[in-house]
């Protein structure tokens, strides 16, 4: 496999960069030239080797730097990781799910050996070699959820299922698109989605919840969501809005191609076996416009999507003020030619 891990930053000097391989496998979220909410779920099963949809938990060139950024966020604000007392069992479910999947999908990077409840975990990229007792949190340096999500890219919502609803009762949230675990903890599915415009009226959340409640063991699902971020920031949290919100005003016609990023979330949904809870990993991928437009199909389509997006959505996604500048930049790559269906750049 041989992934070469980047040494890069998501803050300060922003040295984050995507290699040509990372650009090509970017999860471009638009399969046609327009966008509206939909319950766009599909089974989380392998698609196209090398794509971000191939493994249960994608590991890429950003892994090591992304984990370093998470550690910094947690140092400054420990409340980004919380777990209500009844969620520890779900934490063990998650630890087992991730360790087993990574050891199977990336045998040269991760190794898991289980002898009864004596477990041995090796994480080569992060230099971790741990022996612990499964289901005994005192044998790990952190609780099971925190332990494994400090070693896994993406945010993690750990959900309890009861009363025909899902409850945000634990999570590791450091790479979020402007929502707060500390605010949402303990809320149910409708409560934490309350701020989203238009989708409630369309009945989207009722159908989405029904779908999620029926997700079964061994049959995970996934969907994509997206927004826009200025600078390659993983931590766009409400807690730190005063630090990153103002950066949206630094965009100019000269720097929009290199400073404006499309932010895509690969959200997946797994039933957890012991707790009957669910985990909802939200993996964030960033790409600057300059890199995105290197594929003509993506460039043309993205211009049309941003141009025709309803005002409510552009406002909710936080780029309504910068939309004209972004459109001016993208327009030069849209010659009006037809685009092929589907998300793949070269199909």
């Amino acid at each position: 496999m041989g992934i070469e891990f980047n040494k890069e930053t998501y803050r300060g000097d922003y040295t984050f960069t995507n290699s040509p391989t990372a650009i090509k496998r970017f999860p471009f979220p638009f399969d046609k030239d327009s966008y509206m909410y939909a319950v766009n779920m599909e089974p989380h099963t392998p698609v196209r080797e090398g794509s971000v949809y191939y493994n249960s938990f994608d590991v890429d060139e950003h892994y090591v730097s992304e984990m370093a950024d998470r550690a910094m966020v947690l140092d400054e604000d420990p409340l980004r990781c919380q777990s209500l007392p009844h969620m520890e069992l779900a934490g063990w479910d998650l630890l087992e799910l991730i360790m087993a999947a990574k050891a199977k999908d990336y045998p040269d990077l991760f190794k898991l050996t289980c002898d009864g409840d004596k477990w041995h975990w090796v994480n080569k990229p992060l230099g971790i070699d741990e022996t612990f007792t499964f289901m005994d949190a005192s044998t790990l340096p952190y609780g099971p959820m925190e332990y494994i999500t400090r070693q896994t890219q993406g945010d993690f919502c750990l959900l309890d299922q009861r009363e025909e609803n899902l409850w945000m009762d634990a999570g590791m949230i450091t790479t979020q698109a402007d929502w707060s675990l500390d605010f949402d903890i303990g809320m149910n599915f409708f409560e934490w989605h309350a701020p989203v415009p238009l989708a409630h009226e369309k009945g989207i959340f009722i159908r989405a919840l029904k779908f999620l409640l029926n997700i079964q063991q061994g049959a995970p699902a996934r969907r994509l969501n997206w927004t826009m971020t200025v600078n390659p920031l993983l931590d766009t949290s409400p807690e730190n809005y005063h630090k990153w919100g103002i950066q949206k005003t630094t965009l100019t016609p000269e720097n929009v191609g290199s400073k404006q990023y499309l932010r895509v979330e690969l959200q997946s949904f797994f039933r957890l076996p012991r707790s009957n809870g669910m985990v909802f990993p939200i993996r964030c991928y960033l790409i600057k416009l300059e890199d995105l437009v290197t594929y003509p199909k993506w460039a043309r389509r993205f211009h049309r999507v941003i141009r025709d997006l309803p005002v409510e959505l552009a406002t909710y996604k936080g780029f309504i003020d910068n939309r004209p500048m972004i459109l001016d930049y993208l327009a030069q790559f849209d010659d009006g030619a037809e685009t092929s269906p589907g998300v793949w750049p070269e199909d």
Binding site: H86, M87, L89, D160, Q161, R162, Q216, Q217, G218, A219, P273, S275, N276
Partner: peptide, 12 residues
């Protein structure tokens, strides 16, 4: 079939 739980414990 794989296990399905419609009657799980309330862990709280």
């Amino acid at each position: 079939s794989n296990p399905v739980n419609l009657f799980s414990l309330d862990l709280r």
